[in-house]
């Protein structure tokens, strides 16, 4: 059933960051959490429950999916545990992310016009 990506908006910070982390390739759970922690400079930290609770719901709503097993063994960069599951963004997920970023961008534009961003507070 085709679904309207608009219905998924707005995204929560955790979901947004997971999608951002998956935007340049598939990753396993711990790598997702680590990347988010690094890119946000430790602002967003999550525990295993939060991460996999979200992953489960994101799988259910089909914004991400599990990557096929054979791809994993060839991935030499990662710490290679064959039991690890890798996740990747679906086309639907990419649409959702794009729409969310557009929305956020519009918000930032608005803030610029009102001189709220970029030193405008002084």
């Amino acid at each position: 059933m085709a679904r309207d990506p608009q219905s998924q908006l707005p995204l929560t910070p955790v979901v947004l960051h997971i999608l951002l982390a998956l935007s340049d390739g598939e990753r396993h759970g711990y790598a997702i959490a680590q990347e988010i922690e690094e890119t946000t400079r430790g602002q967003v930290r999550m525990g295993p429950g939060t991460l996999y609770g979200s992953i489960q719901r994101m799988l259910a709503s089909a914004v991400i999916e599990e990557a096929p097993a054979r791809r994993r063994a060839t991935d030499a960069n990662e710490n290679d545990d064959a039991r690890r599951r890798y996740y990747r963004m679906t086309a639907f997920g990419r649409r959702v992310l794009e729409l969310e970023l557009d929305r956020l961008n519009a918000v930032v534009q608005l803030a610029r016009q009102k001189h709220l961003v970029g030193g405008a507070r002084a």
């Binding site: 998924q8 979901v15 999550m46 609770g53 489960q56 259910a60």
Partner: peptide, 19 residues
């Protein structure tokens, strides 16, 4: 999510931030 999953398929949105 598990127990309500089947009863409300349309309720299957993304989570808000759990925390």
């Amino acid at each position: 999510a598990l127990v309500t999953h089947r009863e409300t398929p349309d309720d299957n949105d993304l989570p808000r931030d759990n925390m």
